[in-house]
Design a protein around this nucleic acid. Structure first.
Length: 205
DNA sequence: CACGGGATCGTCT
DNA sequence: GACGATCCCGTGT
């Protein structure tokens, strides 16, 4: 069943980042459905987190989405090439978000292969925040949409996959070297042993 | 397998 | 005008 508003409105984004592991991210683009299990996440939390776009509660046209009520998408273009998908959490005015960094394909695998121009299923298909967006058809056109409605082009479901506390690993976030002391925070979470965790993560622990 | 660099453009200064 | 919450490919070992 689809995750309700109450799931997202909690104020502990580190908990939500862990609770999202095992949940299923679904896109429905003009009737083409793809779905994948979330296996890796990272938390970002204004105002204290220097790695967060909304650090110090900085409001710009881009970060405005993060200040909205939890349960919406935050998609932005990274390095001019990759569209990164985040889940906005917490009540309005608290700029918290969870970046989805790796997913395991479940449905619409043929479609994902086509989008990625892959001929065979392998982890590079959707291990990594940029590649999973490409596989699932996520672009900045899906920024700031409601994730709690099946009428949306994108939402998140609970399909009963259970992840034990012991099955969750944590480590430093990736690609945030500029964030000074926040670099050390272990705000990245993944399902232990998953093949679909981003490749850079595997290297850096 | 490790490393280095190029791609590419919206966003903010 | 500089810089990314990245990825992929080429090179060398």
């Amino acid at each position: 069943m689809i995750l309700s508003k109450s799931f997202y409105l909690r104020t502990d984004v580190l908990q939500i980042a862990q609770d999202l592991l095992g949940k299923v991210l679904v896109t429905n683009l003009d009737g083409t459905v793809t779905a994948a299990k979330i296996v890796e996440t990272e938390a970002y939390r204004a105002p204290d987190d220097k790695a967060c776009h909304a650090y110090n509660n900085r409001r710009t046209a881009r970060t405005e989405t993060m200040f909205r009520e939890g349960g919406r998408s935050y998609v932005y273009l990274c390095y001019g090439i990759h569209h990164l998908f985040n889940v906005v959490t917490a009540p309005a005015e608290m700029a918290h978000a969870v970046l989805i960094r790796g997913v395991e394909p479940l449905e619409g695998i043929e479609t994902m292969l086509e989008r990625r121009k892959f001929s065979k299923l392998k982890p590079q298909l959707s291990a990594g925040p940029g590649t999973l967006s490409k596989a699932l058809g996520i672009t900045s056109a899906l920024n700031d949409v409601d994730l709690t409605s099946v009428k949306s082009p994108i939402w998140i479901e609970d399909r009963g996959f259970s992840i034990s506390r012991k099955g969750i690993k944590k480590g430093k976030r990736i690609g945030v070297d500029y964030a000074e002391e926040c670099v050390e925070w272990q705000w990245r979470f993944w399902i232990d042993g998953s093949e679909w965790v981003s490749l850079r993560s595997g290297i850096k622990k």
